[in-house]
Design a binder for these strands. Structure first.
Lengths: 180, 180
DNA sequence: GCCGATGTTCAAGAAAAAATGAACAATATT
DNA sequence: AATATTGTTCATTTTTTCTTGAACATCGGC
């Protein structure tokens, strides 16, 4: 970490992006932008993208305080962001180096792991959730009123939906392999 | 459409989900739920999922008024939703049948087209946007200060990022083919 | 065992996204 | 052409999501 200025900071007009410590270089800012965009595209909060981006643009591991200072984020955001990013395997602890007492963080830079973690943590659950819904659907379909023809069509639709689901599941491992 | 009750409706306490016309059947509600979930997972508004879901659960094509009534959505939402869904190729016009004057809508039910349209309309643009960013990054990287070792690391990171990008692009057509 | 330094949790505030509705356009009907 | 019907646009309101900050844990050193 750079120095104090943690709780005693006189609220020095925190600019849009960028904390009070060492300001971000052009390289860093652009890298952040890339990952913020990516995060949003994937439905993650901007701050997560910033955190990952900062780590990615950093040759050395950073600790909690570094991240907070340089990005000008609240402790809460940094804490939650790191937690989530670690959960999907996008961020890891650096090996505990000798004298250091605080945890230092590094980005996972292998695309395969990154995507794998994301699919595992974010996509799978969705698929599983739908599984239950689809089962329920099958039941309700039987109770659906209407002509035989109508029923037939809905039947077909439902079958297709189930098939989609299976295909969806099937592509995942495939994608991972492709990126390996 | 069913009947009047358009502008003259006495604001009959519109329930959470469900309009004033024919209420949704269990089958329809569950189907909606599936697609609302899917929409959210993909970053689309809930209402888009509802619209597509309703069409999907419908054996016959529906028109603007049908959709608005059954879902209890505002005209604005239905209009925008249909527009967006048509833009990604998820919804199509039913062939103009004889006497009908209004447009009737149908869901696209081929997974390949659906996903293809989405990738084309939503993912591609993101990739293209990043392309420019990455170019800028390369420039800034040269201006980045620090030791040779540090520069080397950042260089590597950046190269990896560019490679990811290429791989990302490469998987897309592949996914489409897989779902064909 | 107490203190200080680090981190976490979560209620409340801020920001972003989506839905609404009313004014406006377009199209069909008479 | 006038009018009624259908659909679009967009400023405003509502809802959802993200961020903040302060109270509360945890851990290491003394």
């Amino acid at each position: 970490m750079r120095h104090t200025a943690t709780a005693s900071a006189p609220d020095t007009a925190a600019p849009a992006t960028g904390g009070r410590g060492v300001p971000l270089s052009a390289f860093e800012r652009e890298t952040l932008a890339v990952f913020v965009g990516l995060a949003r595209a994937v439905g993650l909060p901007k701050s997560y993208g910033e955190i990952y981006g900062l780590l990615y643009a950093s040759a050395e591991p950073l600790n909690f305080g570094d991240i907070q200072e340089r990005l000008g984020l609240s402790k809460g955001s940094v804490s939650q962001g790191l937690k989530a990013l670690r959960a999907v395997g996008a961020v890891r602890l650096a090996e505990p180096d000798g004298g250091r007492t605080r945890d230092y963080f590094q980005p996972e830079t292998e695309l395969r792991r990154l995507v794998g973690g994301f699919l595992q943590e974010s996509v799978r659950p969705h698929l599983d959730g739908s599984d239950r819904r689809l089962a329920a659907l099958r039941t309700h379909l039987l109770a659906e009123p209407g002509s035989a023809a109508r029923r037939k069509i809905l039947q077909t639709r439902h079958d297709k939906l189930v098939r989609w689901h299976k295909q969806g599941r099937a592509v995942l491992p495939w994608i991972e392999k492709f990126l390996g």
